[in-house]
Design a protein around this nucleic acid. Structure first.
Lengths: 340, 340
DNA sequence: GGCTGTCAATGAAACGTTTCATTGGTGCGA
DNA sequence: TCGCACCAATGAAACGTTTCATTGACAGCC
């Protein structure tokens, strides 16, 4: 039979014949308690099956030993490696990770941020659907919880850890321009946040540097919609002046590949292809896809490490730190000069 | 300037000129407080920027409104969809999800289970690296936290939600046997847990039903090792009597495909291929891979729903519930009769 | 030998809520 | 008009820790 009532520190103290304070210090491995007593307390605790109450501890110590993570979509494979690495670092630092899914809905984001406040988390790592949503920014600026923006940047003085999406896209587009492509499609996510915005800017800058005019109809930024990759690619590819190359976000690529297959276009003969974010889909495709690569796990680990540093006060908060992680272009067999 | 000290319910009560209890009831939207007072409390709370302390609430109410999730590997794409769906259900039910990564290490699993106890979680959904690890089972059987096993089953009377891995593998192997394959390789994860064990049993049963002897060298169960897929496939394929078909777990498939490519084998001409777990890699491969399919999200949602039902007491705990979700074989173009 | 300093251990206050027994006031039926 | 039931609101106890000022004992020093 299980005891009906929870064992508290009081029972342990009584059983060991010592005071509450003593038990507390034994539990927390603080010094200043004699060897014999320590043993007595420990064995009493064991005998009773005592488990300290986190709620009481965190209420008293004003620390939840927990960190909130808010991402737009956990199921996104690009995120899951990142999230895994963040958890690893946080756990090792003695913090637990609470994971929430905002599904890119600003109202849910606000709700989650409120929740993080109530939970008195020691820190949070967040992704925003729109970097400039006023309601969200207000909550954020009033928050006193150490925060690290993740794959996002803000006008607010917030620390951030992000991949260098600008350089990544710039490399990809420049590479294709160098191969003599003049009509390059870009299929990615919304410009309301860093990744899409940086890619759009890089796309334009690379074209400008090469003296090639930009055709707005070759850019699609609604990658978060279901089947967006398919629709965007299909629309571009059946247009009167179709692109000869496509730069595509990893999440849009499955849809894009379906469109290509539907239209029976051969890669790279008819169409060159670069994927942003190197996944199994890219490396295992036939032909293997040239891709912009970065280490997903590193982004997560860096975000978690920065947050831990902020929590411990090791990093001064006077001026926001922005960590940008590098990308590289992995050349495979999905690109060629455009057919003449 | 931010206030140096946290606003508590006491300040709100003072400012609104009411008692603590009244504020508490307003905050918790309980009835029995007049309209005018309610407004006064609300506006006082707003003015002061009051945010209730979760720690205090959960200490008093003995509920953490949180659920722990322990998976072996978050980065595993098969898990991430599942985890996402579980989070969705739990969040909607008013619970937060704490995600932890056991990395399949029994010692870390035990540590995490202890943590879940201390945190007084209202429930937990867990994956075990070995279903029969005695130390883990002891912790589990002494735990009073409602628990749902996830893709695992135990000799302990624990509720579980899992995919029907047995039928899935049976379908795949039978299909290949029907195509006249006589040497079929199986590459998957450890038999110490449900998925690998069920697949091994199904493999043997299907062979027995077809009157085909089983060759143990055609089974590999160390899919959790890095590059296991590659090594297992390579070893089998270069052996004197290589398999003519391979049934491969989704996580091992990238490695297997690399081995196939290295050996320049054509699929399905030289080798038939079935993937267990239908991912983008399978559907986008050339040729598209025949796969055992199930809905990842449904498994997570079902686990979360069962757990919520247990927490609320809607389901009686006298006898464990085992929910098994169906699989189907999706026929694509990676299988053919063996070359003669 | 008295004083001081050190160390182990104690006991009570404090953390911020919820809950519950009470109080005070109001309306209604007898 | 009294008593009763009802309702809004109060005040204090309780939840399970940590922390901090205090006590008691003992050794070292002048």
């Amino acid at each position: 039979m299980k005891k009906a009532t929870r064992i508290t520190i009081v029972e342990v103290a009584r059983r060991a014949g010592v005071s509450l304070g003593t038990v507390s210090r034994v539990i927390n491995e603080k010094e200043g308690v004699g060897h014999e007593l320590r043993e007595r307390v420990l064995s009493a605790a064991r005998a009773l099956g005592y488990v300290p109450s986190f709620a009481a501890q965190s209420m008293r110590s004003q620390s939840s030993r927990a960190v909130g993570l808010m991402v737009s979509d956990i199921s996104n494979p690009l995120f899951s490696a990142t999230v895994g690495a963040a958890e690893e670092v946080l756990y090792r630092g003695g913090y637990n990770m609470i994971l929430t899914n905002s599904r890119d809905r600003p109202d849910k984001e606000k709700e989650i941020l409120d929740l993080f406040q109530r939970r008195r988390f020691d820190g949070m790592i967040i992704t925003l659907s729109k970097e400039e949503d006023p309601a969200t920014l207000r909550v954020l600026s009033e928050s006193r919880i150490p925060t690290v923006l993740f794959e996002r940047e803000s006008t607010l003085p917030l620390d951030s850890v992000a991949t260098d999406h600008y350089s990544g896209a710039h490399q990809a587009v420049s590479y294709l321009l160098n191969l003599a492509h003049r009509r390059i499609g870009l299929i990615t996510v919304t410009q309301a946040a860093l990744p899409g915005r940086a890619r759009g800017l890089a796309y334009a800058a690379a074209h400008k540097a090469a003296g090639v005019p930009v055709d707005a109809s070759l850019m699609s930024f609604d990658g978060f919609l279901p089947d967006a990759g398919y629709h965007a690619a299909y629309r571009m590819l059946v247009s009167p002046r179709p692109p000869t190359a496509l730069v595509v976000g990893a999440n849009q690529m499955p849809g894009v590949l379906k469109a290509i297959r539907t239209l029976k276009l051969s890669v790279p003969k008819k169409l060159s292809l670069v994927q942003i974010g190197d996944t199994d889909v890219a490396s295992l495709h036939q032909p293997p896809l040239t891709a912009v690569r970065w280490e997903f796990a590193k982004v997560g680990a860096a975000a978690a490490e920065l947050l831990l540093a902020k929590i411990s006060g090791a990093v001064d908060g006077s001026r926001p730190r922005r960590i940008v992680l590098p990308t590289e272009l992995v050349l495979r067999q999905s690109c060629a000069a455009p057919a003449v």
